[in-house]
Design a binder for these strands. Sequence first.
DNA 1: GCCC
DNA 2: CAGTACG
DNA 3: GGGCCGATACTG
Length: 770
Amino acid sequence: MTNNRDLDKSITAKIAFFKGAIILDVEDDETGFPDARLIDAERALVDPPVKPKRPKATKRESSDSDRLRDRQNEFEIVTTKMRKAAREDFPKIVGIKRVSSAPDMAPKKVQKVDKGKQPASRAPKKTTPPKLQHSSTLPTPPKMEWYKEVGDVPRALGRSKIPKPANIKLRPESQQYMKNLIVYFYQNNDYDEGRRLRIHKVIELGGAWVKEWRDDVTHVIVDERINYTELLKHLEERYGVKQIPAHIIVTNWDWYMGRVFDLKCLPLEPHGPLYRIRGAPDPQVSTTNLHSSSPQLESQDSLQLKPSKGKAAAREERSPSRIEDSFRQEAPKSRKRTISPDRQPSRSPRPDSRSGLSSGHKYSDALSAAIGQAKAFEHLPLDFEEDEASSRPSTSEGTGTDTESEEERPRKIRKTSPMQFSKFDQSKFQCMTKNDGTSTSGNPNQRTIEVLQEMGKYYDMMQDSWRTVAYRKAVTTLKKQTEWITTKEQAIRLPCIGERLAAKIEEIAMTNGLRRLESTKTDSLDENLRLFLGIYGVGLTQAHKWIQQGYRTLDDLKEKAHLTKNQNIGIEHYDDFATRISRIEVEVHGQIVRKALQKIDPLFEVTIMGSYRRGAKTCGDIDCVITIPKGSIDYIRNTVVDELVPQLMKEDFLKVGLATTSKDNGSKWHGASALPGSSVWRRIDLLLVPWNEMGAALIYFTGNDLFNRSVRLLASKKGMRLNQRGLFKDVMRGPNRAKITEGTLVESRSEKRIFEILGVPWRPPHDRQI
DNA sequence: GCCC
DNA sequence: CAGTACG
DNA sequence: GGGCCGATACTG
């Protein structure tokens, strides 16, 4: 790198400068740590960290346990996506949506969510004991059906993606064999269609279904594959129920309900062995008349009393590959757009400035040098691939190629090719336009952007990734506007802004706020989530487990929770890692790595990437790409692992490794570093890159994430694929773009050429902030 | 959330 | 394998 | 209605 020497010379000066306690003009252009607006560079070297504000760990009252549990329900879905919903006193399902799984995969298996311990639920018993409830005393039709009043309303049958709560027509009273029974299923969600049907049946027959355990449950109906032990484990973990009261009938669907339908009444001996689930204790050993059918009972699950009905459900449960749904709260539909000043518009006078677009950005020396380096790769000939790309498709597209015809695969699998460019509008990809992200200050939509960003953060916290992305995209769009967007009609014309966001934008413009956001702010549970999610090595699954177990503070975790090594570090240096890093300090870290590496082999090159390369004024971490001309990846890896890291550890610059590269084919090293004399640990990532993959690596490690995703999606639409190692073409894909063949490498050395081949205009890193 |  | 992390 | 990045890489 050409800038090595320059930086080298200036490093002492910089450290000196550093110690001069400069206050940088920090702008939180990288979302995430809005609090770290001030970075006192000096403390990075000497002082203990100023604690950044972080979500306060609030003590929760027991009265919140219900809400907690509700949240847990909604969050226990197949993927790691979890959502929040609010449940009212009586069930009112506002909206249900299926959460898609990981994009590229076949449907994932249902994952069991470990519920952890939870206090017994105190579901309000708003009903009198069922026996006293005579539905005949409810002659008035407008009165809510009993099952809705007492229990929960399952979603309607059918595969509708936007499910509605069922409105179940009860059987005539004469056929309500399950009248006034309160049934708890296990598994107890209505995502599974087979189970949902059963729930509906129960309700048709006059029963009620409850989603959560209650003391007044009369029946527990268990899936075929579940045994008694599992049921007990579930009840104890989730509700603290250690023992199922004897009066509660625990049974399996097929035999018990089969008998109900047969007898047209409830079985007289509900605890009989016929209905007992696997592993269940005999409640009355002495009195039970064990028919001679016991041998069968041991393997009840192989018996299908009603195979026709049970089939679908059983299949689904055995190979639970489909994705479950989650409840979520929908934004209020009837948004009253009263211009009433429920929020004082005094907050910030509407910015009238039209300036909007940013002025040209000046690069720092390092950055321009890095760009220069990238440009150094760009002089490569542009000849071969272009022609090939345009001529190739005609051969591979028309008639099936050899490989294709040999496959017995359905025709859906096809080789996509650049021929199909016209099938989509490339200009709609966000990577096609400049996004410098700097036009916020003078943007007339400033306030709107702020609010939407907050909402995006909120959804991020809820791990609603798609909605998060949607909000970020919308913000990006707004940032590019020079006009103040005040109406739905205005907003909806913009890309990535649909009806719902348009309505929100209008509301924000009118009221200077958004009620929905306000409501989320008060939810202090979010603060706990945010706190835990801020720990390195903790994601939503773990965070929720902990919250659900009652942990609220980092100290709680330290004392009680089982922590992985990384999580321990993440907690110990929570504040360190949450503090943003000035560009200057980033440079110094990079320079230390560079110097150490070049001491080993002067040909090594270290480039600082990430938000630093995008010109951010502060960075969340330090991203270094390490490469070397004429050096294999093995050489790089061995040098880094065997020499660089030990050396820097010895010097006490590197503090710890968090995710260290695997020996045979690894490429990244994550850890922590601290400047000499500083106690503040910084997250530092080293990416080990073979020389000829630098272009792809540059794109990847420069980001930002949305930019990368946009480019990668575009590549895949063009029959190519892009990852940190290169751009490949002739990728064969199956349904859902699932990759079938690797494809052949098109380009990996030159960042610019990758863009060219994709038809994406090259832009400097600081314009890649989607 | 948006988009096809 | 799921969870987490990286841009 | 189904997709939304990477057959990413590392941990346990």
